[in-house]
Design a binder for these strands. Structure first.
Length: 427
RNA sequence: GUGGCUGUAGCUCAAUUGGCAGAGCACUGGACUGUGGAUCCAGUCGUUGCGGGUUCAAGCCCCGUCAGCCACCCCA
């Protein structure tokens, strides 16, 4: 057995069927993004490492990015996320861009982590952001974009949903419990981990982090209070807006959601399947200081990101994956014999000239083999030109789906195929 | 970075206490010499991930190594 060089760990080969699925996903999220008035953009795939050093979260850039020095010695990172690039792009043209900014993007990202279910080292991500509006209704719009996408692709609110929380509310509550602001980062991580451990383990872990029993008990109570959101005017307005947008079935308050990235300042949310089988499908929230942090004026923003891997797992689980195949050619021009090669090439050219997608069978194999190939490839029409047709100045046109065959003059072949394809599409 | 599981034909997987490496699919040819999805017949397909060890005998047991998957960490 010959050894094939294996792909880089954590990358995926996109065979035509897989690429067709990715393109379908792209189409769906483009549709939602545009429906809400967002414009497509993109940043570079390579960024200076310094762009992430500020705010992305220590571990993300230090341990989980692909970093290297270029030939000039500069520290370069393969982008692990898009939001810092967005902040920089906006900061650079802050005076020219009319507000609000509604932008979306879909492209590749890289994170140096151990691959596992729902996580690869190279993945595609949908990013969508609204900048220049600081209101709960803006937060609600992003949640609505996410929920509308989920609904559009066929996922029911009984299957997936958005969990929402607010960091300001959480911070106020922690202050009320007498927990010092310096400890917030640690406490957020603690809260994030709550549902991964048993209560006793979690309490022991919390104590280990230096929290006293009173604080731990107070935090526990916060996390069990499903009505805590009513204390936040922001969340009240948020949920009211979500209701007006008609998506309240998909959106719920969840006091345990905090999100890992350091730059979130207000409302945060993530979407997951209700069984909790998979990791989060998407995640995002409000970040009010990011543009200022990269050298611009303060500009509030809200947005989320969705990776292509988990959403595919969820779609598969709930039977929402479309049955796709790579788009086949419309016509196969067969090659009857060595003597007919020139005629076949000529026929292919004629068909392409009227805009048809034409594949040429490159060897004079037995006709059954050529037709079987057309059938398996999903090609609708086969053109056959042997000595009999040739003598009459015509060709045989076979409709693989209808199992019909007619003989037409070479001059009218292209028009005939086009007419029949149109008919087939309308039927 | 830490831990667990799995590596057998192109693919999906069998192989009893260690005892002749198999099946389905796919592929190729034929039945059918210029007409595709079915059926039947025949055929090709192996360094059992790699290296060592134990044994009369290893796909199976032991050690090492590589790869993949899963979990932790973190996160889309």
């Amino acid at each position: 057995m010959k050894t094939i060089i294996s792909p880089v760990k954590g990358t995926r080969d996109f065979y035509p069927e897989a690429l067709a699925l990715r393109q379908w996903l792209y189409g769906e999220l483009a549709r939602v993004s545009r429906a809400f008035g967002y414009q497509e953009y993109d940043g570079p795939f390579l960024e200076p490492m310094a762009l992430y050093a500020a705010k992305s979260g220590e571990e993300l850039v230090r341990e989980q990015s692909f970093c290297f020095n270029d030939r000039g010695g500069d520290e370069i990172t393969l982008r692990p996320e898009l939001t810092p690039s967005l902040a920089r792009m906006v900061a650079a043209r802050q005076r020219q861009l009319p507000l609000p900014i509604r932008w979306w993007s879909f492209g590749p990202f890289w994170r140096y982590e151990r691959p596992q279910k729902g996580r690869t080292r190279e993945f595609f991500q949908w990013n969508i952001d609204l900048l220049g509006v600081e209101s709960p209704e803006a937060d609600a719009e992003l949640a609505a974009v996410a929920a509308t996408f989920l609904r559009n692709v066929g996922l029911k609110s009984s299957q997936v949903y958005l969990q929402v929380n607010n960091r300001r509310l959480l911070e106020a509550e922690l202050t009320r419990l007498g927990i010092a602001p310096e400890l917030r980062g640690m406490v957020f991580r603690l809260i994030d981990r709550r549902d991964k451990m048993r209560a006793s383990e979690w309490e022991a872990y919390a104590a280990d982090q230096g929290l006293n029993t009173t604080s731990i008990r107070g935090i526990s109570q916060l996390l069990e209070n499903k009505d805590l959101w009513t204390k936040s005017e922001e969340l009240q307005a948020f949920f009211q807006a979500v209701k007006a947008l008609g998506l309240e079935e998909y959106v719920e308050y969840d006091p345990t959601i905090v999100r890992g990235l350091d730059y979130y300042t207000g409302t945060v949310f993530e979407a997951r399947d209700r069984d909790g089988e998979f990791r989060a499908v998407l995640g995002g929230g409000r970040y009010d200081n990011l543009v200022g942090d990269v050298g611009g004026d303060r500009l509030p923003g809200v947005g989320f990101a969705m990776g292509d891997v988990v959403i595919q797992l969820v779609l598969e689980k709930f039977g929402c994956l479309p049955s796709l195949r790579a788009a086949p050619a419309q016509v196969l021009v067969t090659t009857f014999g060595q003597g007919e090669v020139g005629a076949s090439l000529d026929l292919g050219r004629r068909l392409r000239e009227v805009g048809l997608l034409v594949e040429w069978y490159p060897t004079p194999d037995r006709l059954p083999k050529q037709l079987k190939y057309a059938d398996q490839a999903g090609i609708r029409f086969a053109v056959i030109c042997g000595p009999d047709e040739s003598a009459r100045g015509s060709v045989s046109l076979k409709d693989l789906a209808k199992r019909e065959q007619i003989e037409v003059k070479v001059e009218v072949l292209a028009e005939e195929v086009r007419r029949r394809l149109l008919e087939a599409t309308n039927a």
